[in-house]
């Protein structure tokens, strides 16, 4: 299992273990990430959403998320939502603040766009801080402790392992293509080459998976892992869980009263 733990597909060391959050039980962090996402999605007032974003920022600091990489991911997310965010101020009816010919920007539409932007960014930041810093293999064990079906957890653990393998294989194949003067471009030839690349990736990985399964069966693998014993939650786990639970409950309560 330790090789699996070390296989990190992000091609960079897992987030520094020095972060305070990383000391907490992974299953607790998964539950808290889901709870945070759920509560944030339920919030509708801008001040509460700003508070949620601040809380997520605090979590990111506690997890010592790398600043540049995290901001890049949040920007990618905002880029995805751009068409929606641009259209909302025009399409939501309400008090106009500015006019461009036949189009009017409404206050309600701007508020709606801001709400979506804040919700998405607060959630992604909290999820990256709480769940994204779990070692991939321990992520699988945490899912098992949360009573996900055993087959699904086994699939997840294999997937985590194969992502690392496939990424190496992908790099090898790309290098072989580069050696033959392949350059990615927007041509049909280039797209077909990518198709062949994925096809080869599948052929090689399937054969590898067959060999691995055969070898594991020889050693008595019946399609199920024996899960490591879960250590009970520690005092600091409880403390952190209660604190974050209280904070999100406060957010929800202030939303309901507002």
């Amino acid at each position: 299992m330790s090789a699996l733990v070390r296989a990190d597909w992000r091609a960079e060391p897992a987030a520094s273990p020095a972060g305070r959050l990383q000391a907490l039980a992974p299953e607790l962090r998964l539950v808290l990430a889901a709870a945070f996402a759920l509560v944030t999605v339920l919030l509708g007032q801008i001040p509460q959403l700003l508070a949620a974003l601040a809380l997520a920022g605090l979590l990111a600091v506690l997890a010592r998320l790398p600043l540049a990489r995290t901001l890049r991911r949040m920007l990618a997310l905002d880029g995805f939502m751009l068409p929606l965010l641009l259209v909302l101020p025009l399409s939501v009816p309400g008090v106009p603040v500015a006019r461009f010919g036949p189009f009017a920007l409404s206050v309600e539409g701007l508020a709606e766009a801001a709400r979506i932007l804040l919700t998405a960014n607060a959630t992604v930041l909290a999820v990256l801080a709480l769940a994204g810093t779990i070692e991939p293999a321990r992520f699988g064990h945490a899912c098992q402790r949360l009573r996900l079906p055993a087959k699904l957890v086994t699939l997840l653990l294999f997937t985590v392992r194969y992502i690392a393998v496939l990424q190496q294989e992908y790099r090898r194949l790309r290098q072989a293509m580069r050696a033959r003067a392949f350059r990615a471009s927007g041509s049909r030839h280039s797209w077909r080459s990518f198709g062949h690349l994925f096809g080869m990736l599948l052929v090689k990985s399937f054969e590898r998976a067959e060999r691995v399964t055969a070898a594991m069966r020889c050693r008595g693998f019946t399609g199920r892992y024996y899960w490591p014993e879960a250590p009970p939650l520690t005092a600091s786990d409880w403390r952190f869980g209660l604190l974050l639970g209280l904070a999100t409950a406060l957010l929800l309560a202030s939303e309901a009263l507002a």
Binding site: T154, L155, F158, T159, R161, Y162, I163, S205, A209, T213
Partner: peptide, 9 residues
């Protein structure tokens, strides 16, 4: 499961 995991990866 292993082959399915390959595709997921």
């Amino acid at each position: 499961i292993p082959q399915t995991a390959v595709l997921a990866a």
